[in-house]
Amino acid sequence: MTDVGHRSPEPDEAAPGWSVRHVAYGDPDAVALTEEVQEIYVERYGGPDATPLDPLMFDPPEGSFFVGYLDGVPAASGAWRRSPAGALGVEPGSGAAVEIKRMYVRPAFWRRGLARRMLSHLEADAAASGARLVVLETGDQQPEAIELYLSSGYTPIPGFGYYADSPSSRSFAKLLHP
């Protein structure tokens, strides 16, 4: 596994105290945030996200995992991975389509714009890696996530991936600008 956890956090000049650090999937802060979001899935859906994930999916160049810190405290997470399936006219296996995973903001940090900042960071990082399209999936019990994605320029698409046929699944896509 690539050791990416020692990179310095990248400060966000527009949000004092906010920084994002590229980490390995097994980084302790990443693990804690992932476990917390799974608990929320259990509360809202009756079980955790069962999507099969290999931690190597989040190692560059196949993907990246990030933790966002507010005043040095881990507050948010987000990741992207290459999408193996063709989507919306993007050639399968071209690396031009990525999927966002593990977007999460701890409840103590809600309503501060951190989810939007993390989403923006993920999109910029994916675009820098050659991605032209971002896809993601959320559920109907996460209206705040659906609103974030719609207000960030994502459009609904047919279901894909592990939850493609789930009636509670909501899928979205956004074209990235190079």
Score class of each variant (00 low, 15 high):
residue 4 V to D: 15
residue 5 G to Y: 10
residue 5 G to Q: 07
residue 7 R to D: 08
residue 11 P to H: 10
residue 12 D to V: 01
residue 14 A to W: 00
residue 15 A to P: 02
residue 18 W to M: 07
residue 20 V to H: 03
residue 23 V to G: 05
residue 23 V to M: 04
residue 25 Y to M: 09
residue 28 P to V: 03
residue 30 A to W: 02
residue 31 V to M: 03
residue 31 V to N: 05
residue 35 E to F: 08
residue 38 Q to P: 08
residue 38 Q to M: 10
residue 39 E to K: 13
residue 44 R to I: 11
residue 44 R to S: 07
residue 48 P to Q: 04
residue 53 L to D: 05
residue 55 P to W: 07
residue 57 M to H: 12
residue 62 E to A: 12
residue 66 F to P: 01
residue 68 G to A: 15
residue 68 G to N: 06
residue 70 L to I: 14
residue 75 A to R: 00
residue 79 A to C: 02
residue 80 W to G: 01
residue 82 R to G: 10
residue 84 P to D: 14
residue 85 A to V: 15
residue 87 A to C: 12
residue 90 V to A: 01
residue 90 V to G: 04
residue 92 P to H: 04
residue 93 G to I: 12
residue 95 G to P: 01
residue 100 I to W: 10
residue 102 R to P: 00
residue 106 R to M: 15
residue 107 P to V: 15
residue 108 A to T: 15
residue 111 R to S: 15
residue 118 M to I: 13
residue 120 S to T: 13
residue 131 A to K: 02
residue 139 G to H: 15
residue 140 D to T: 11
residue 140 D to C: 09
residue 143 P to H: 08
residue 146 I to W: 10
residue 147 E to D: 15
residue 156 P to V: 11
residue 159 G to S: 09
residue 161 G to S: 08
residue 161 G to A: 05
residue 167 P to Y: 03
residue 174 K to A: 09
residue 176 L to I: 06
